[in-house]
Design a protein around this nucleic acid. Structure first.
Lengths: 207, 207
DNA sequence: TAGCAAAGGTACTCTGCCGTACCCTAGCAT
DNA sequence: ATGCTAGGGTACGGCAGAGTACCTTTGCTA
């Protein structure tokens, strides 16, 4: 009998996971073309033989990393919106959370890679957008709809409003961060977010 | 005597320029690492020998392309703001112009390259930002200041306001375009811009 | 018309990296 | 304890691309 082993021992999964993590580092540091499997091996330990045991080739490794990421990405940007919390607080929290996630080093590295490889891997770009900014827009726009039905807000086109809200939240902070330029400190960012919330509410408040 | 030849014949300049143009195409299509000098040669005509006559090496060619671009980039995003044109029109024109430039295929390709190579070529990222979005922000913010002094607007922090204005203008349209996803049609873009102008004016109008 | 100089093209070297064939080491069964 | 098997490491084949050496060709001069 001896352990049916449905194709995946504990240690093997860990091994695979280590390669995945090392791969992420390398791909996000050098981009797809610039990354070398040797460098992944150097960081993951083991050897190429091991890498090619778990993945077909370089592209397969990259695809696996992307798939793995997208799974994780459904999580962080989902602070469930509770309709019971004041309008300002809800919008402000959402904005802070959104920008906070976007400005993490890891998110920036992912964004850079997705941008540069998006043309060659269109599903990657699409999935990234859908799970990330797209999901946030959907969340906010359905909230705006509910608040409009409740008479708190007067939003005619909830989705456009949501898109523009996040545009204001990103301001040029996200772009600067993506380009590797200095970003404002937390205090300034918080101010920028409050201002955005003010502007937004002033426009869509149901008088 | 025979033509002093201060180091640059007409034909030579043209040759150099052709290489530069071909190089731009290739670098923006494949990224710095993915681009090959051979491919540049294939498009520019001539041979590697010629390329290496004008440029030290691959990096030198890239640097020259960047320098060349930055020179040209001071131009397009500068529709001189005339203070005599209504507030709405000024903002709307500026927004349309800004987004129009950003959404051009060439701009998108440049942006992608700058994003992916920005970490390795920080001056490139900085220069791109300064000449592009940064310049636009300065233009708008000084306009907002003038209008505030004239009593038309009431803007306390002109620069932040300008940043957020362009954030709203970009909405998520720019991000989608950068990722190679579908972008809305002209009609929807125009609507988005009008809406942004409305929101902005409603906030900062001097009652 | 014959020789020469310079510009440009071809073909080579060398490096780096993907993917694989072969070897070695470690754990298990007899 | 010894032979065997499986999994992992090393070292190589093959290829693509950066940069260069040498040859060819074209235009000029005596």
């Amino acid at each position: 009998m001896a352990m049916p082993e449905q194709g995946a021992g504990e240690a093997e999964l860990e091994r695979r996971d280590g390669i995945l993590r090392a791969g992420m580092e390398v791909f996000f540091e050098y981009g797809y073309v610039g990354a070398s499997v040797d460098e992944v091996v150097r960081r993951a330990g083991g050897s190429k033989r091991t890498v090619y045991k778990y993945f077909d080739n370089k592209e397969g490794l990259f695809a696996a990393i992307v798939a793995n990421l997208l799974e994780q990405m459904t999580q962080p940007l989902q602070p469930e919106i509770t309709d019971e919390q004041g309008l300002y607080d809800t919008l402000e929290n959402l904005g802070k959370n959104y920008l906070g996630v976007l400005l993490q080093d890891e998110s920036l590295a992912i964004f850079r890679t997705v941008v540069s490889e998006g043309v060659k891997f269109p599903e990657l770009a699409k999935a990234f957008y859908e799970y990330g900014p797209g999901a946030a827009i959907k969340k906010l726009s359905s909230y705006l709809l509910r608040q409009t039905e409740a008479g708190v807000l007067k939003v005619d086109d909830a989705e456009s409003a949501a898109r523009q809200y996040f545009g204001m939240i990103r301001s040029d902070i996200h772009m600067r961060a993506v380009l590797g330029l200095e970003v404002p400190g937390d205090k300034e960012i918080d101010q920028s977010i409050s201002r955005a919330v003010d502007i937004f509410v002033k426009e869509y408040d149901a008088d």
